[in-house]
Simulated assay, not measured.
Amino acid sequence: MYDAWFSKPVSVSTGISGDIRNLSNAQEAIELLVNHWRNEGSQKHRTALRACRQAVMGGIPADLARNAFVEAAREAHVLVE
């Protein structure tokens, strides 16, 4: 397994207070998608989770997973742009 490092971190707002987290790899994204996601179960959430899991297994490039995660974060209104 790999951490699958992103070329650029993804900033997301988390928790009730809106703390900002900068996610640097697919493993961090998986943890957030599984344990702390606002819009769990949507198509973009499932796609991002699948892509991040594939990236940590070495099946796809980390930045493809990053792109899927960004789309899911945008849909859940947690992406900090």
Score class of each variant (00 low, 15 high):
M1W: 09
M1A: 15
M1P: 04
Y2S: 13
D3E: 15
W5S: 13
W5G: 03
K8R: 15
K8S: 15
K8L: 10
P9M: 03
P9L: 04
V10R: 08
V10I: 12
S11I: 07
S11D: 14
S11H: 13
V12R: 07
V12A: 09
S13Y: 11
S13N: 11
G15Q: 10
I16H: 14
S17Y: 11
D19R: 13
I20Q: 11
I20V: 14
R21W: 10
N22H: 13
S24V: 04
N25H: 09
N25G: 00
A26P: 02
A26H: 05
A26T: 02
I30Y: 03
I30K: 09
L32S: 04
V34T: 12
N35Y: 10
N35R: 11
N35C: 09
H36T: 03
W37H: 06
W37E: 05
R38L: 09
N39G: 01
E40N: 05
E40P: 00
G41R: 06
S42M: 01
S42D: 00
S42N: 01
S42T: 10
H45L: 08
T47M: 13
T47E: 11
A48M: 02
A48K: 07
L49R: 09
R50K: 14
R50W: 11
C52R: 07
C52K: 05
R53K: 15
R53V: 12
R53T: 12
Q54K: 15
Q54P: 04
A55R: 09
M57H: 13
M57W: 10
M57Y: 12
G58L: 03
I60F: 04
D63F: 03
A65F: 07
A65S: 06
R66A: 05
N67A: 15
A68D: 10
F69N: 07
V70Q: 06
V70W: 08
E71F: 07
A72K: 02
A72N: 01
A73P: 00
R74K: 06
A76G: 00
A76V: 00
A76Q: 00
V80E: 10
